[in-house]
């Protein structure tokens, strides 16, 4: 089952900015993931900072591993946002895989 989470209510104007604003959204995503569902992050009309995206998905990668990305869909992302998401995912997956304890 896929649950869609619109980002508009986490943004001021068109930008979702702080880690503090991302944390409640991440908690909601964690609830959905832990119940076996997939998460659809709907970014229509929203841009985000690298910090917001890192708090949202970087944290999930570090805590659950890169496979969590198989259950997250990124919808309606602009080119800038897509670049930020790709950067955060690559960097945090690399960090996770280089941890001595992840095995």
């Amino acid at each position: 089952m896929r649950t869609q989470l619109p980002l508009t209510s986490y943004a001021k104007g068109h930008l979702a900015g702080t880690r503090a604003a991302a944390a409640p959204l991440r908690l909601r995503a964690e609830e959905i993931l832990s119940s076996g569902g997939d998460v659809v992050l709907n970014f229509r009309g929203v841009e985000a900072t690298q910090s917001f995206i890192d708090e949202l998905i970087g944290y999930l990668i570090l805590s659950q591993g890169p496979s969590v990305l198989e259950r997250i869909v990124f919808r309606h992302c602009s080119e800038n946002l897509r670049a930020i998401i790709e950067y955060v995912a690559a960097d945090r997956c690399d960090q996770y895989l280089k941890r001595p304890t992840h095995h």
Binding site: E70, F74, E79, N80, I84, D91
Partner: peptide, 22 residues
Amino acid sequence: RTNFRELLPLVEGIPRIPLRFE
């Protein structure tokens, strides 16, 4: 004209992670 693909640090040597964009 801010282009974040040009501004973010390079992730050289890190495999591209498949992501589900729609």
